[in-house]
Amino acid sequence: MIKLVDATKKYNSQSNEILALNHTSMTIQAGEMVAVMGTSGCGKSTLLNILGGMDRLTSGHYYFEDEDIASFGPHKLHLFRKNHIGFVFQNFALLNRQTVYENLEIPLLARNQRHYKKRIMDCLEQLGLAERAKSLPLNLSGGQQQRCAIGRALMTGCSLLLCDEPTGALDSKTTKEIMDLFCKLNMEGKTIIIATHDDEVAKCCKRIVRMEDGVLQQ
């Protein structure tokens, strides 16, 4: 499903050049649940941004279902994101002035979908948030907020779920709840890549890859 070949990503800061991905390669099959482990600043988030089409490689190739994403123009990249990718972030990245329901509505509106109320409510039911549909995210607990963020990612109908430190802001009990949810989604067929530095989180995944100074060590 995913194949990175000799992928390099450089950032040019004022004084020096940062090599976030350093000629690294990796393959992930459909339906896998992979943990990408590494210390802060090792390039995990950059990897997820590249995989999610939010950023571009400086050199190398990124194949998604045999298509070279690295060669895509802005429009095709947007369509790739829209059709295949769902994001979950450490700090949830919810719109705090919009309700839980409205947050889940965003991907559907972006896709011009109609008659989606039942779909959102079913998803919220599945996530145990049906009763909080009209609440603002700030009035929810950390676990509830992350479940809301996962719900929003699921609304995209994605085949690949990219999670950047999804449990970083949660306690251990809630972390377990969220990881159970990811395992369930993986069982249902979603490919999930989780960037984390938490061993307990990594243990829940089928495969662990470690990352150091922009290089993946499988």
Binding site: G52, M54, P74, H75, H78, R81, K82, F87, A93, L95, I106, P107, A110, R111, R152, T156
Partner: peptide
Amino acid sequence: KQIMGIYIAFGMTKTD
């Protein structure tokens, strides 16, 4: 800007 980033991540184009 953050909100714009979220919108783009979840399927909107820059034009949207």
